[in-house]
């Protein structure tokens, strides 16, 4: 009969220190190819609407006139179907914690 067989591990855990990371001070590097969020390089987009057609969650709306690419982030299920469908390869998946590409630059562009 084995009683309290977990005690060995509990004692070990007391000595070893925490197994968790000190998040957010210490952040693990994302794995290559992690699907975190969808970003678009709007300069090379031709507004063909393929991504909107393939999206299973209806998160994307594309209109040709006026040229508009709309993305509802809360609807996105991060499957990556749009990235595969894009003929111009202007869509890409980046890790979740990556910086928004040129957020300031975009704002500047709009202001102009």
């Amino acid at each position: 009969m084995r009683l309290f067989s977990i005690f060995k591990d509990i004692l070990g855990n007391l000595v070893k220190g925490p197994v968790t990371r000190n998040y957010p001070a210490e952040v693990r590097d994302p794995f290559p190819g992690e699907r975190g969020k969808l970003v678009i390089d709007e300069k090379s987009c031709i507004f063909c609407g393929m991504c909107a057609k393939k999206c299973p969650a209806n998160a994307l709306t594309v209109t040709r006139q006026p040229k508009e690419w709309k993305f509802e982030r809360f609807r996105c299920i991060i499957c990556g179907a749009c990235v595969e469908a894009c003929p111009k390869k202007c869509l890409s998946m980046v890790p979740r914690l990556a910086e928004e590409p040129k957020a300031e630059a975009k704002a500047k562009e709009k202001a102009e």
Binding site: G33, E34, I78
Partner: peptide, 15 residues
């Protein structure tokens, strides 16, 4: 979970 994330880019919804 790490093995799955490293190979597919997601933890559960592998896609």
């Amino acid at each position: 979970m790490d093995a799955m994330e490293a190979t597919t880019g997601a933890r559960v919804m592998l896609g």
